[in-house]
């Protein structure tokens, strides 16, 4: 229950951090907020001898409006993200996730970069960021790479980042006109509990109120955030109504690949997926309509 013997490297530049990661690979890990990594180190799930702390790289902290959309620095805490005016104005659906996850203390420490890079299936930001079309910026001395989220996650605790790459930011493109998105999660308790199942939905309505585009991504029910392609097929071109959303929910239940654990059986999770999908779609639709009018 202690952090094992480690060496700590506090970096002030990305170059330093990356060089250390290279030097000590594979026994080095980036340390951001530490809310995931420290638990893993204490419980023996992570085996690392070098912690490369990036918390002093100030340029990674903040939320900026850019031509490409919102740029969220990797070190931005969940709390800061939640209270950012830019997020409130331009990327409000993200707040469905930031407002519900973990507990205040954890949200004050946990970073956006950590939430993505840990690649834990029940993490709350990935599904909604996926639906919003976000891209991850991965930095290494070779340069910057942009990775759309579906190409970022490989499996539980595995991403496509190289061992010397550092996640520096997430770019969320502007939401198109007529677009609304929402995130719905189910947890066993109201405070400080991780998601048992989650669904993020995005809908774009055309001038006639038909669904012009749709995205649905599930959390906690597959090794990676699970985008439900079938849902798009089901939804696009139709007028939104209850039976249509039922169909999309059924598609989501089919696409889910849940496991059974202490929080619930696979069967239970699958049922939740349907319910959460409908609820996320309902909210997304309401928001899309608000965005149109």
């Amino acid at each position: 229950m202690h952090v094992p013997e480690v060496e700590m490297h506090a970096c002030v530049t990305l170059e330093d951090a990356s060089a250390l990661l290279t030097r000590y690979a594979p026994r080095a890990r980036v340390l951001a907020g530490g809310t995931d990594l420290l638990v893993d180190l204490k419980t023996g799930r992570a085996n690392t001898q070098h912690l490369v702390s990036i918390s002093r790289i100030g340029s990674l902290r903040g939320v900026w409006a850019t031509a490409e959309g919102l740029r969220i620095g990797a070190l931005t805490s969940i709390t800061r993200l939640h209270h950012s005016n830019l997020v409130r104005e331009r990327c409000a659906p993200l707040r469905d996730a930031t407002g519900q996850m973990a507990a205040p203390q954890i949200r004050n420490m946990a970073t956006v970069g950590g939430n993505l890079a840990c690649a834990v299936p029940c993490a709350d930001l990935p599904p909604i960021l996926t639906v919003l079309g976000a891209e991850v910026v991965a930095w290494s001395p070779r340069g910057e790479r942009r990775l759309p989220l579906p190409q970022f996650f490989l499996g539980p605790r595995r991403t496509t980042m190289e061992s010397d790459e550092i996640l520096t930011a997430v770019i969320v493109p502007p939401m198109p006109a007529g677009f609304g998105a929402a995130y719905a999660r189910f947890a066993l308790r109201e405070g400080n509990a991780i998601a048992v199942a989650a669904a993020a939905a995005g809908l774009r309505l055309d001038g006639e109120g038909r669904i012009a585009d749709a995205r649905l991504t599930l959390g906690a029910v597959a090794p990676v955030p699970q985008t439900v392609e079938l849902a798009r097929e089901v939804l696009v071109g139709h007028r939104p109504d209850e039976p249509l959303f039922e169909k999309a929910a059924a598609a989501a239940e089919l696409a889910a690949r849940p496991i059974s654990d202490v929080r619930g059986s696979a069967e239970f999770r699958r049922r939740l997926v349907g319910v959460l999908t409908r609820r996320a779609l309902d909210t997304a639709l309401r928001r899309a309509r608000e965005a149109t009018s």
Binding site: A10, G34, T35, L38, S53, P104, Q105, N108, M109
Partner: peptide
Amino acid sequence: VDGEPMNSCLLLAAE
């Protein structure tokens, strides 16, 4: 920590 509540069990002293 700088006025924000945090879990000191998950914060390294060095950090």
